[in-house]
C-alpha cells in the first residue's frame, strides 16, 4: 500500500506566551490510499484540529506533513488551494453550503475553481453527482428549501464532484437525525468502496466501527484503540 498521508512529529499551538495552548503534541500518523479511518476521542482532544491540518485548512506549528509525497508546509497559499481543490473533498457538520446558491450551483463551485474543467461540463458533472446522492429532483432548490439530510447530501456531492483522492468529514452526521445520518454515512462508505480514502471525525462509536481503522485522540496525542 502507498502512503497518502504521512505526518511526523506534527504539533499545533494556539495563542502566545501565557495563553499558549498545545492542541497537538508530536503526532505521527500514516494513512494509505483507499483506507477508511475514523478519528475518535473526547471533546477538546484535537480531533478537528488534526482534520483541518490534514485537509489543508491550517498548518502545523512543528513537524512534517506530506500529502501524496508532497511536503505541504512548503507550499504557497495558492498551491495549497489548488491541492485542496483537486485532491480533497470536505464534508462539514454544519453542511457549509452557500445559502444564495442552488444545490446545482453549490455542487459546481469546486469545478469553477479547477481550470482543467471546461465550463460547458459544470452542469453535466454536477447533475451527475447530485443524481448519485439521490437529489436529481432538487437541482434548483436553495439550501433553505432542503432538509438537513438533503443539505448534507448536497455537501457530499460537492465534496465528490472533483473526484478527490481524500474525503474528509467532520462530524458529518452530527446535525442529522438517525435516519438521515445513516443515509449520509452510507453515501460516504460507498465513496470509499469506489476507492476514495475516507477520514472522518466522529463521536459516534457505531459509525467509527464501520471504518477500517480508528484513531483515538486525547490531549493532543494519539493512543491505540486498545488503550
Amino acid at each position: 500500500m502507498n502512503n497518502l498521508i504521512h505526518l511526523r512529529q506534527a504539533s499545533k499551538t494556539f495563542g502566545q506566551g501565557a495563553t499558549t495552548h498545545n492542541v497537538l503534541k508530536g503526532i505521527d500518523l500514516s494513512i494509505d490510499a483507499g483506507e477508511a479511518v475514523a478519528i475518535v476521542g473526547p471533546s477538546g482532544g484535537g480531533k478537528s484540529t488534526l482534520l483541518s491540518i490534514l485537509g489543508l485548512l491550517d498548518k502545523t506549528s512543528g513537524g512534517e506533513y506530506q500529502l501524496k509525497g508532497q511536503n505541504v508546509n512548503a507550499l504557497t497559499r495558492r498551491q495549497t488551494s489548488i491541492l485542496r481543490n483537486r485532491h480533497i473533498g470536505w464534508v462539514f457538520q454544519n453542511f457549509s453550503l452557500i445559502g444564495s446558491l442552488s444545490a446545482l450551483e453549490n455542487v459546481a463551485l469546486p469545478l469553477r475553481y479547477n481550470p482543467s474543467i471546461p465550463p460547458s461540463d459544470y452542469a453535466r458533472l454536477s447533475k451527475q453527482v447530485l443524481e448519485q446522492v439521490g437529489l436529481a429532483d432538487k437541482l434548483h432548490l436553495r439550501p433553505d428549501a432542503l432538509s438537513g439530510g438533503q443539505q448534507q447530501r448536497v455537501a457530499v456531492a460537492r465534496a465528490l464532484v472533483n473526484q478527490p483522492a481524500l474525503l474528509l468529514a467532520d462530524e458529518p452526521t452530527g446535525n442529522l437525525d438517525s435516519h438521515a445520518g445513516e443515509a449520509v454515512m452510507q453515501l460516504l462508505l460507498e465513496c470509499h468502496q469506489r476507492g476514495t480514502t475516507l477520514l472522518m471525525v466522529t463521536h459516534d462509536n457505531g459509525l467509527a466501527k464501520r471504518c477500517q481503522r480508528q484513531i483515538f485522540l486525547k490531549d493532543g496525542r494519539i493512543f491505540d484503540a486498545a488503550d
Binding site: 497559499r77 489548488i82 485542496r84 457549509s96 444564495s100 475553481y113 472533483n162
Partner: peptide
C-alpha cells in the same frame, strides 16, 4: 465571510 470561507475551502483563490 462564511460563504467566502467555504469557497476558499473548496479551492477558490483571492481572484475568485
Amino acid at each position: 465571510m462564511e460563504n467566502n470561507r467555504i469557497r476558499l475551502v473548496l479551492g477558490a483563490d483571492m481572484l475568485h
